[in-house]
Amino acid sequence: MNYNWNWHIFFEPNPTGAGTYLDMLVSGLLLTIKTALLAWIIALIFGTIIGILRSLPSKTASWVGFGYVEFFRNMPLLVQLFLWFFVLPELLPRAAGLWMKQLPNAPFWTAAIGVGLFMSARVAVQLAAGIASLPRGQKQAATALGLTTAQGYRYVLLPMAFRIIMPPLTSEFLNTVKNTSVAITIGLIELTGQARAMQEFSFQVFEAFTAATVMYLAINIIVVTGMRFLERSLAIPGYITGK
């Protein structure tokens, strides 16, 4: 193989005229972080609501939860992003569709919301499993004390369920970060996008993607460490996850 390694490429100016190739990658990294964080917040909020619906005794509530989860988890993420980005504006009334297409940063919002909703289905399933894993008596004890259903969830069921699902939630957070790379297909120039751009401008494909890999790794090490720390600080003395 005839390949000219050039690790100095990162410090050479990039053709856009704004800084070096490294600056390009860092701006992609920041966009990836921003997209992933917003997506994760959306995933947690919607996942929690749907997870709760799935655990309620009401038939209607569990049907709504079921429909939501199956809709978002049975379609490839790529197809979902295309759907939100290309198809939805066409389906809406003309004025609304036009407004959507002209939104500033449309790829960013679409990616964050699209990835967020996709991940929320997974959070929902895990939360519902976490709630189901609690002894039935916990809900009864809360109810018997006069707590309303909402209070029972807020003060008794959710604090325990979230502690139990902390390890799989960490994986979902990591998946959220990695899934933002799919947004390159709707024109979001995040980390993967910038790495590809760098490769196209400089032909240093290995350096570009090595750097991108290292950056993804760095984000995810921070996520894992943070979640571990959170898990430990929430551990209950004497309980399984505690010491």
């Binding site: 009864q140 004890a141 809360a142 006069g146 502690r163």
Partner: peptide
């Protein structure tokens, strides 16, 4: 319910 106390077989204290 708040006016009637109930004690369960498996205690059901809130572990957290």
């Amino acid at each position: 319910r708040a006016r009637v106390g109930m004690v369960f077989q498996h205690f059901e204290l809130f572990p957290h």
